[in-house]
Design a protein around this nucleic acid. Structure first.
Lengths: 257, 257
DNA sequence: AACGGACTCGCACGCCGTACGAGTCTCGTC
DNA sequence: GACGAGACTCGTACGGCGTGCGAGTCCGTT
C-alpha cells in the first residue's frame, strides 16, 4: 500500500530526552521572530541566534525550514476559536470563526502567504475544520456539502484577508502615517485606475473614511453574502415545491431579474 | 502633496532606444520560466541565462525582482476574460470571470502566492476590476457596494483556488500518479484527520471520485452561494416591506431556523 | 571627431538553506 | 566505575541567491 506524503504530521516524532532545545521552543521563538520582523527575517541563522544556539542545531528537531513553517502555521490555527454552534447557533459560530481567522492573519501577516502555499493538515487546523463541520451540520447541510461549505467559508476569509495584509505591508514599508499616508494610498490608487473614471470617482468616497472601518465593512459584506447564500440554498433544498429546479443552484428564471 | 508609493505602475518608464533586451521580452521569458519550473526556479541569473544575457543586465529594464514579479502578475491578469455583462447578464459574466481567474491561477500555479502578497494595481488588473464593476452595476448594486461585491468575488476565487494549487504542488513533487496517487492523498488526509472520525468517514466518499471533478464542484458550490447571497441582498434592499430590517443583513428571526 | 546617454555585464558582498562529520553529553548496562 | 550507544550540538563548507558598483560598449547627435 502506498505511503502518505512525507510531512511533519505523518512522520513519527524523534525519540527524545528532554534537551536544551525543544521543538516547541523553536516554534514559539520562530513565531516571535516572524511577528517582530516579518517573513524575510526568519532565517535559520537568525533563529539560532535568537535561541542562543547554533543555526544547524535546529535541524535535529526539524527536518528543514519548510517543516518549521508548517509547524508555525498550525500554531496560528491554534489561536483561533470557534464557539460551540449548539450554544450560539451556526451562523454566529461561523461568523465568529471568520472574524477570528481574519484577526489571526492580520496579527501574523506572514501567515497569509504561508497558508496559501501548503495544505493545512496540522492538528489545530483539523480541530477547527471538524468544529466548523459540526456548525454546518447544525445548519442542515449533509454529506459532502459539509466540506464544500467549510471550504467556501475558509476560502472567502483567506482571500479577503490576503489583500488587506498586502496593503498593510506596503504601508508599513513606507513608514508614513496619518494624513500623509491617506494621501499616498489615495494617490497610488488614483493613478493605477486612471483609465477607469468610474473606479476613480468611486474611490473619492473613501477619502474621508477610516481605512480599517472600510475594510471591515467590505469583509462583512462578502461574509454575509456568502452565509446568506448558504441559507438560501438550505431553504431551497428543504422546500419540496422547488424540487424541479434541483439540478441547478440558480435557474434561468432566477437569472432574468 | 504626498507622492504615491513608488511602484512600476506609478513610475515613468525609462527613455529608450530599442535595445537587444526589452521589458516585454524579459517578462515573457520570466513567465515561461515560472510555468516550466516553478517560482523557486526564477532567479535573475537563470533568467539572464535563458535570455542569453548577463543576469545584471535585467536591472536596467526592471528596478528589482519584486518589480518583475508585479509585471509578471499583471501578465496573468491579461489572460483573463470577462464577457460583456450587457450581453450575457451579470451572473453569467461574473461566473465566467470567476472560472477564468481560477483557470489562470491553476495554469500558472506560482501566481497565487504572488497575488496574495502584493496589491494588484497593474493595468490589466484594473481593466478587469472596472469590467467587474459594470457587471455588478447591472446587477443593481450602487456606490461602495460595487467595490464590496467585486472584492468579495475576487476574494472567494483567490481563496478557493489557493489550496487547490497547494495540493497540486505536493502531488507534483511526489511524482506519483494514478491509483498510487489517490491512495497517497487519501492516506495523508486520513492520518491528519485521525482524531476526527466525522472528517475521516466523510473523506472515504471521495475515494472513488475524480479529484478534479470534486474540486470543481466544491468551487462551484461556494461560488453559487456567494452569488446567491448577493442576489438575496439585492432583493431585500429592493423590497420596501423588509426595510425595517435594513440595519442588519440577517435578523435574529432569520437566525432561528 | 567628440560627446553623452542608453545599455551590458563581470565582480564582489553579504546573505541564504543545509549536508556533513566531528564533537559532547547523558543514560542504561555490566 | 567503565563503556557503549544513542541523543544532541555546532563549525565548516558548498552552491546558490539579490543586487550595488563601476568599467566597458554601442550609437545617434552635433
Amino acid at each position: 500500500m502506498q505511503q502518505p506524503f512525507d510531512s511533519v504530521w505523518t512522520r513519527e516524532p524523534r525519540a527524545s530526552r528532554s534537551s536544551t532545545l525543544s521543538r516547541e521552543q523553536i516554534v514559539r521563538t520562530a513565531v516571535e521572530l516572524l511577528d517582530a520582523e516579518g517573513v524575510d527575517a526568519l532565517s535559520m541563522r537568525r533563529l539560532g541566534a535568537k535561541l542562543g544556539s547554533g543555526a544547524t542545531s535546529i535541524y535535529w528537531h526539524v527536518a528543514h525550514k519548510d517543516e518549521l513553517l508548517e509547524l508555525v502555521m498550525d500554531e496560528v490555527y491554534g489561536e483561533i476559536t470557534l464557539p460551540d454552534p449548539a450554544v450560539v447557533g451556526w451562523q454566529d459560530a461561523v461568523t465568529v470563526f471568520a472574524y477570528g481567522l481574519r484577526d489571526a492573519l492580520r496579527k501574523h501577516p506572514w501567515a497569509a502567504s504561508l497558508l496559501s502555499t501548503r495544505p493545512s493538515l496540522g492538528p489545530n487546523a483539523m480541530r477547527l475544520l471538524a468544529r466548523m463541520t459540526t456548525a454546518f451540520e447544525q445548519a442542515g447541510f449533509t454529506g459532502l456539502e459539509l466540506d464544500y461549505a467549510s471550504a467556501a467559508l475558509l476560502s472567502y476569509v483567506l482571500g479577503a484577508t490576503a489583500p488587506e495584509i498586502a496593503w498593510q505591508a506596503v504601508i508599513d514599508r513606507s513608514g508614513l502615517d496619518g494624513e500623509e499616508l491617506v494621501t499616498a494610498v489615495h494617490e497610488t490608487v488614483r493613478r493605477a485606475a486612471r483609465d477607469h473614471p468610474g473606479l476613480v470617482s468611486r474611490h473619492e468616497q473613501y477619502r474621508d473614511l477610516d481605512m480599517d472601518v472600510t475594510r471591515a465593512i467590505s469583509f462583512d459584506f462578502g461574509l454575509t453574502c456568502l452565509i446568506g447564500g448558504m441559507k438560501a440554498r438550505l431553504a431551497r433544498d428543504a422546500a419540496p415545491f422547488t424540487e424541479a429546479h434541483d439540478a441547478a443552484p440558480f435557474t434561468d428564471a432566477d437569472r432574468e431579474q
